[in-house]
Design a protein around this nucleic acid. Structure first.
Lengths: 342, 342
DNA sequence: CTGTTAGCGCATTCAA
DNA sequence: TTGAATGCGCTAACAG
């Protein structure tokens, strides 16, 4: 672990000169010393000490990526390709920019604030922030923050957020259902409370139904349990009386696929007896038969967009776009019955 | 951002005393000052500066988690629940131990060495290290390293590795096939080169077949392409002549499920026309019909075990177990035809 | 173009 | 039981 001082000594120059070489301040160094120092740097295998840099510069080149989710071991979250895809995208982008990625899972905003201070984080990505906590976080962290898939109270503060056109997604899927002659639906939500993305998607469904003069009641919003046993029990009640529930509009492909398999195993035909749709267009929607009609989102692109926006902020650039909503695309497969035919 | 000096000033004591309070050196501080300093610490919202700590102590409380994989965007890798599950497990464990997790993807050993030095990493987790590079890494990093799912040349050096009893997995699945009257198989490998986990699994199959007096030739080992188009083309050749390939023993549930769906879409019955097995027992093996017979591994437990071992090493404890092989378990579902019946 | 120097915040040794 | 002093490696302002 050679230090700048040692390099300077070996090269017969001052630490400042070495530092200038290191930082590409070539106009401050004569070509000959530049080459000489670079040579020593290489031969001595100089490695910067980030502790010292952090102390001297009061930043770290670390991007903190905070996932707001239940701290408990949750199979459905861990097996969801969303997290691995967006993490992979972010890691790759952060690395390209020459930064480092620190990952942390929490649901405690104070912890986030502490983390940012302790590590002098250059920027933060906050994924799935509950509405209630985002003020405090934003107020206490004087570093660039980009939210991902987070929704906010309208308090006039402009948050940088990379989200999805959830409302549009709900609208598209509902309009498709209506076009296929469906007149009632049950929205199976990921979140217990009707807020954020789920709320927007449901609102989109409502809008489409309203356009046809149909009112979608609030009780058509039903959260799916995080507990697989409870979930299976619920699918059971559907299996017992498939026609009572209307079309099943899931807010996640994972649950849609799970339900589809359960119902099929119980002898119920999809879409003959009941129609099902998903949301995400991930691997699960392609791994069931019939293929799941769903709403596509580009998760990898979402990760890239979040880091790109954060990097602009880190570099002090102005970023006028605040709440970016990535587009959705209806993916029509075969899980919805055409009720208009015949 | 209150510093120790400021706290000391406010409390009317010296920085040393504050430091002692911070580190729980209570025997060196009188009860009254202890309480007093703690009070100030709280009210001033003291946050340690990791840069300073790194500089002073020459370590960082950061665990570096390095994934050795292709730097390119690879759908099959990103959508594989393995990475998200093991990451989730590790993040959770690292956090419990009071450490921080830095994630990095690379296939360049020098980069790993640099990272360890630059960040004074307290320990490293190296996932999927290719055989060729592990010497250099081990030699150049004088910090605890735990490998995950890595295989080594037998050079007498004892590496700390958390792996899987891959050989046993291959053996179990092959023995099951033999018991069901199967007499030939094709091993569909994840890696292009027959090494590491794939090699061990294939060797396990070989052993089971050898026990029945059947020799499994090297050409029964066939790597599956990472390119989905090529993969589909390959599945096509199977569909054209299903009986020519024998039983399909995949080294990953993902590919097994993908192949199963493709073949079924082409009208081939599983397991009637062709039998298929997987490896991992992840969500995909449960999301296909018939359910995929496969080999179970506890990925979450693997992550936990890796961090537990690393933490022992970080704390200077001796860890006699070196190459830990987590157990496998045969998961019998319905993708293998019983050829003994009738 | 090059060198000197003063911190950054903390741990730690030694002195009181 | 408490305090003063030193140094970790680097940056940046300043002096030459």
């Amino acid at each position: 672990m050679a230090t700048i001082k040692q390099i300077a000594h070996k090269a017969g120059v001052s630490p400042t000169t070495v530092s200038n070489v290191l930082h590409g301040n070539t106009e401050k160094v004569s070509p000959s010393t530049l080459l000489h120092v670079q040579e020593i740097l290489r031969s001595e295998n100089y490695t910067p000490n980030m502790g010292a840099i952090m102390l001297a510069r009061n930043n770290s080149r670390i991007i903190g990526v905070i996932m707001f989710m239940e701290p408990r071991r949750d199979e459905t979250v861990l097996e969801d390709p969303f997290s691995s895809t967006i993490m992979g995208a972010m890691e790759s982008e952060i690395r390209k920019y020459g930064y480092f990625m620190m990952i942390h899972t929490t649901s405690d905003e104070a912890e986030v604030v502490r983390l940012a201070g302790t590590w002098k984080l250059d920027g933060l990505i906050l994924v799935w922030v509950p509405e209630a906590t985002n003020h405090i976080i934003r107020k206490c962290i004087n570093r660039p923050v980009v939210f991902v898939d987070s929704y906010f109270d309208d308090d006039g503060i402009a948050y940088h957020n990379i989200g999805l056109d959830d409302e549009r997604g709900g609208y598209e899927i509902a309009r498709y259902l209506l076009a296929k002659g469906h007149r009632s639906m049950l929205f199976l939500a990921n979140d217990t409370v009707a807020t954020g993305a789920d709320r927007a998607r449901f609102d989109g469904c409502r809008r489409a139904f309203a356009e046809q003069g149909i009112t979608l009641e609030e009780r058509s919003y039903l959260p799916v349990s995080k507990d697989s046993v409870e979930r299976i029990r619920f699918y059971g009640t559907i299996a017992d009386n498939p026609s009572a529930f209307g079309t099943l509009v899931f807010s996640a492909d994972y649950y849609a696929a799970e339900a589809m398999l359960f119902l099929q195993d119980r002898g119920i035909r999809i879409p003959g007896d009941i129609s099902i749709t998903g949301f995400d267009d991930n691997v699960f929607s392609r791994m069931v038969r019939p293929g799941l009609t769903t709403v596509h989102q580009d998760v990898y692109g979402k990760g890239q967009a979040a880091i790109a926006m954060l990097m602009k902020l880190v570099k002090g650039e102005q970023v006028p776009e605040h709440d970016v909503r990535l587009p959705v695309r209806l993916m029509i497969r075969d899980s919805v019955r055409d009720r208009t035919a015949g």
